[in-house]
Amino acid sequence: MSTIHIPPSPFNPSDLTLITQGAEALVYKTTFLTPSTPTALKIRPPKTYRHASLDARLTRARILAEARVLVRCAREGVRVPAVLGADWEKGWLALEWIAGRTVRHALDGWLKAHGDDVGSSEGLEVKGLMGRMGKAIAQLHGVGVVHGDLTTSNVMVESEEGLEGDVVVIDFGLAVMSVQEEDRAVDLYVLERAFVSTHPQAEGLFGEVLRVYADGYKGAKGVVKKLDEVRQRGRKKSMLG
């Protein structure tokens, strides 16, 4: 971005380390509540092209929507980053820092080292990871949450090496509350397309995500069936080519 971003109060730029910069929000690493609590600070900067009142209204609604979805997941016992603090007037959200790597990163590393073993016994590790992803997404859908932007960059695995470790879905900036089969199927479709285009070697293993997902909650099997329909339709909601 060419405009330098000044964080809203009470934050000072010197206390923040920029991690990612999306169209919607900037994510910084910092501490929150104690000097030893690592935190992901998500800031939605004002958009100058919008009428000020519309911008404030949207920022407020989006910070709140994300916070509410995360708290709902917490209440339902679904593991997601915890909400530590929020200020929807100023446009920021402080979330539990999930240590580890994205599934994208972890899988890339593993495939580089073991690419040819995907079908073998060592490939069981990948299969295990896929299954845990399927289970995590099923848990979200099972409590009425649709993520809205599932990619392998939005799922973390809590380990520094290899593919073992808990799977935690992150970045709920586009999440909505929905129990519609269509919405859930599209969630899976987006992930499938993302998976296939970023990890073509492991394409065949995506089925494991769906297999475990299908047993994840009542109605999951129907969603996997619906996914077929969504695939036939092709692009109506996918964002990848």
């Binding site: 708290v71 917490a74 209440r75 915890a82 909400v83 603090g85």
Partner: peptide, 16 residues
Amino acid sequence: KSLESIIIGSMAIKGS
């Protein structure tokens, strides 16, 4: 830990 997350989260969104 779960309970704490629920508590802190509820406090964070209070007043919205």
